[in-house]
């Protein structure tokens, strides 16, 4: 474990806590894409299949359980909680995310570390996570004004994988045999997808203005 990865995991956890806070405190999920949340739940479920077979550390196991439980709770809330589901922007959240599922799965069948059930699903989860934010970014552009908590949520979500890139660089220097090409290239693509959001987030922070994404 290195500081970049630890900070990355904490940033990821903070993003989830911000989203839970938004939904719990405002009883609203306006501006949040249910499709992105469903994709994240799938990412965690397919990536952490080794949860009960490979014990790595208490930290690792606890974090996996937290990520799986929180992502499922958010999807459940957005689908079933009477107040929250009413605030869901169903007519704006129209990204055809099934294509992302299919593309990620096909790519995982082609590109993986080992042609084994768990490894193919691990690669699938890595590719899917890279593109899972797309429905959310599209929804933000369509809904125009972005409320504060939603903006922070997306910012921390993007920042976590950027920190992971430093983690991979660090691990490469420590041990040149350490190669995680699939995760690293995917992580670069994932972070690049946030580029324009980060730009408008920075502008709004600099001008101390509301976060506005151009339509």
């Amino acid at each position: 474990m290195n500081i970049f990865r630890f900070l990355g995991d904490m940033t990821h956890l903070i993003s989830i806590l911000i989203l839970l806070l938004k939904i719990y405190a405002t009883k609203s999920c306006s501006g949040i894409s249910l499709k992105t949340q469903e994709l994240y739940a799938l990412v965690f479920l397919t990536r952490y299949l080794d949860l009960f077979t490979d014990f790595i550390s208490v930290y690792n196991t606890v974090m996996k359980l937290v990520f799986i439980a929180s992502s499922l709770a958010i999807v459940w809330c957005m689908r079933n909680h009477p107040l929250v589901r009413r605030s869901y922007d169903k007519q704006l959240d129209t990204f055809r995310h099934y294509f992302l599922l299919l593309a990620s799965f096909l790519l995982a069948l082609l590109l993986h570390e080992k042609f084994a059930f768990q490894e193919v699903l691990w690669a699938f989860s890595i590719y899917l996570e890279a593109v899972a934010i797309l429905p959310q970014l599209v929804l933000l552009q369509r809904s125009g004004n972005v409320d504060n908590l939603t903006g922070q949520y997306v910012f921390f979500l993007g920042a976590y994988r950027a920190l992971y890139i430093f983690n991979w660089i660090y691990r490469y220097f420590i041990d040149p045999h350490f190669t995680r090409w699939i995760a690293c290239v995917s992580g670069l693509v994932q972070t690049a997808l946030y580029a324009d959001f980060f730009y408008y987030y920075f502008i709004s922070w600099k001008n101390n203005a509301k976060l506005q994404l151009p339509a």
Binding site: R5, D9, R47, D50, D54, N60, E119, Y164, R180, A183
Partner: peptide, 10 residues
């Protein structure tokens, strides 16, 4: 030889 850790990252 210890099986290399499959994926030790989250």
């Amino acid at each position: 030889k210890q099986q290399p850790r499959s994926h030790d990252e989250l």
